[in-house]
């Protein structure tokens, strides 16, 4: 059979429901819109970033949100030479776990440098915000080496 004669229809994979993000993730997202990063305090006094409504280890409910720094340290990283179509980034970049000052858990985001040689575990990076923020994890355009951001 000629492939063009085959009966076909598109399949659109979608999730046609709306969800609320709740008091903790919602607060974090609102923080992003205001260009601040919020974590949440655990029973042992450490700060979880990004925050969840419960402690991921003990499952205890968490409520005390605290602001953390916008600069931190790369704890591990990898290099993305060819970003995928859906990726928020068009050019090669690093994906890294970043431990913000005042936080005790690193979180995943991009470090925007030109080549992997500019990456090093332990390097200091700071947030580069998008001009327009809307309360989404992509409000953070990425992280850049600390000095570069101050320049």
């Amino acid at each position: 059979m000629n492939p063009e004669e085959r009966l076909s229809a598109p399949i659109v994979l979608e999730y046609p429901f709306t969800r609320t993000t709740g008091p903790v993730i919602g607060a974090f997202m609102t923080g992003l819109r205001e260009k601040i990063i919020l974590g949440i305090k655990r029973d042992d006094g450490t700060v979880l970033v990004p925050p969840t409504e419960y402690d991921p280890v003990t499952s205890k409910a968490l409520t005390e949100m605290v602001e953390v720094g916008q600069t931190g340290e790369v704890t591990t990283w990898t290099w993305v030479e060819n970003p995928r179509d859906q990726s928020p980034w068009d050019s090669p970049h690093a994906l890294a776990m970043i431990l913000l000052d005042g936080s005790d858990t690193p979180f995943l985001h991009a470090v925007l440098v030109e080549e992997p040689d500019h990456m090093k575990t332990g390097m200091r990076v700071s947030i580069k915000w998008k001009k327009e923020t809307e309360g989404h994890i992509q409000d953070i355009e990425g992280f850049v080496p600390e000095k570069e951001n101050h320049a």
């Binding site: 993730i25 591990t76 990898t78 995928r84 928020p88 890294a96 776990m97 995943l108 985001h109 991009a110």
Partner: peptide
């Protein structure tokens, strides 16, 4: 769905984060 999926890391990249951690 809120913190990680919108960044679209692929499975190899996530394994690589752990690999670098363990190697270093």
């Amino acid at each position: 769905p809120y913190y990680v999926a919108p960044l679209w890391p692929d499975a190899h990249a996530i394994a690589a984060l752990q690999a670098r951690h363990l190697l270093e």
